[in-house]
Design a protein around this nucleic acid. Structure first.
Length: 400
DNA sequence: AGGTATTCACATGAAACTATTCTCTGAGTTAGG
DNA sequence: TAACTCAGAGAATAGTTTCATGTGAATACCTGT
């Protein structure tokens, strides 16, 4: 009957949290703190929309977790509310271009936009121009102003080329009744420099740059959220400070700070502690890293897993791995499980992908007469290497 | 000694290919009038 | 004759392969002292 008491305990609710929702990454607070100037600046730029005048296209830069998305969503949500009350034809569409298989290509973005207006288009089969014209027709049905927010627009441009951005900026010339303003959000600060000049100038009629938060600001944010999500006196002194310090080190990423705090709380809760202690933060940090690794590796295609295994095997033996060496081990592994190995060219790209996912770090170095290679280092807590390796060996069914 | 040229072992880029999933179109087939 | 079926042409996309070109510095090779 142990389970029963466990469930009873569970039902009684959390010992630490009041409302964990506030710490979830997609939570949209009623008020955004520590970013007042930017709120006002952006609000000023977008305000004409409420008078049915097309606002300038807006471009927002800033690293991850600096509040770009949050603020944009907050402002536009408020605007929409005002618009509804006053019967203003304003439509806000938020699209995250990073979402794989949703809006990361020209076709899919347009299809997704059409979906926002209630027209479901097939995932494939139609020519791209058809999808474009469908969207045009849909929005031009009535007089209205559309604020199109494209989050992580750099990803879109990288994958789909800047052709699509050009088309988007020109969209207003095609429309008779409706008007459309673009709000692009990018993590990549140098992204705009690589754009076609025409696109760049019309896309960023207005520009706002979000600097990273400093430790004090992050602490302020954490404080605010913690007050509403944790029970009183459940955070030991120093916990928030430590969270903030961790995050400030990671280029002021508030999202990560909040996640860290949440996970630390969950750990404390699971251990039946009455308080969140400082050591829980360290554990949380480790857990986040570990989970990321597990998650990524276990959901990857087989080929990537075999490569990751080779990486782990070598990484346990030596601090840095050289690409050629890695490829050899990878090839041997492939033979063991009778898998046709990928070409070196492809493996090179896969390594880059793994780097993007934060599993490895790499650096191209020249060894003079002995060629040019990539020096790869594992960016994973050493403690999880062994378990991870075993896990991979068993999923892949390799017999040593 | 000092300077230049070579050379290695890959990196990086572009294009083309393969396989899958899906739409659209028009020819052929069917069933009812 | 209208409705239905179905094969084939085209598209979009992911994941590769193939081919071509680039690259940085340790060494090999000169050159003149």
């Amino acid at each position: 009957m142990q389970l029963q008491s466990f469930f009873e305990q569970f039902l009684k609710g959390s010992s630490i949290f009041i409302n964990k929702k506030l710490l979830q990454p997609n939570y949209l607070p009623d008020q955004v703190i520590e970013r007042d100037e930017f709120m006002h600046e952006i609000a000023k730029i977008l305000a004409p929309a409420l008078k049915n005048e097309k606002p300038s296209n807006l471009f927002i830069y800033g690293k991850t977790g600096t509040g770009k998305t949050l603020i944009t969503r907050r402002i536009t949500a408020d605007m929409q509310k005002v618009a509804e009350q006053n019967n203003i034809p304003l439509r806000v569409i938020y699209i995250n271009c990073k979402l794989r298989r949703v809006a990361d290509t020209e076709y899919r973005l347009m299809a997704q936009l059409a979906r926002e207006f209630g027209r479901i288009l097939p995932a494939t089969g139609l020519p791209t121009d058809t999808v474009y014209s469908t969207f045009y027709e849909l929005i031009d049905e009535k007089e209205q102003l559309i604020l199109l927010i494209l989050d992580e627009i750099d990803q879109l441009a990288k994958r789909a080329g800047d052709n699509i951005l050009y088309n988007l900026t020109r969209i207003n010339t095609e429309l008779k009744r409706a008007q459309l303003s673009l709000i692009g959000i990018s993590n990549d600060l140098i992204f705009a420099d690589q754009l076609d000049t025409r696109v760049k100038s019309s896309l960023s009629e207005e520009e706002v740059v979000f600097p990273p938060y400093n430790a004090v600001q992050i602490q302020g944010i954490l404080n605010e959220r913690a007050q509403k999500s944790f029970k009183e006196n459940t955070l030991q002194p120093g916990v928030l400070e430590k969270c903030a310090a961790y995050a400030a080190r990671e280029h002021g990423d508030a999202r990560r700070a909040i996640e860290l705090l949440r996970v630390a709380g969950e750990i404390a809760e699971r251990k039946n502690c009455l308080y969140v202690e400082i050591k829980h933060i360290d554990e949380a940090q480790e857990k986040i890293d570990r989970d990321k690794l597990y998650d990524v590796t276990l959901h990857q295609p087989r080929q990537h897993q075999v490569l990751t295994l080779a990486l782990l095997t070598l990484g346990m033996k030596q601090p840095t791995i050289i690409s050629g060496e890695l490829y050899n081990v990878y090839e041997q592994n492939c033979q063991k499980i009778k898998l046709r190995p990928l070409t070196q060219r492809r493996v090179s790209d896969v390594i880059s992908e793994l780097e993007m996912l934060g599993i490895v770090q790499s650096q191209v170095i020249s060894k003079g007469r002995y060629g040019r290679s990539r020096n790869i280092t594992l960016a994973v807590p050493r403690a999880s290497l062994v378990t991870m390796k075993e896990l991979l060996v068993s999923t892949l069914g390799i017999t040593e």
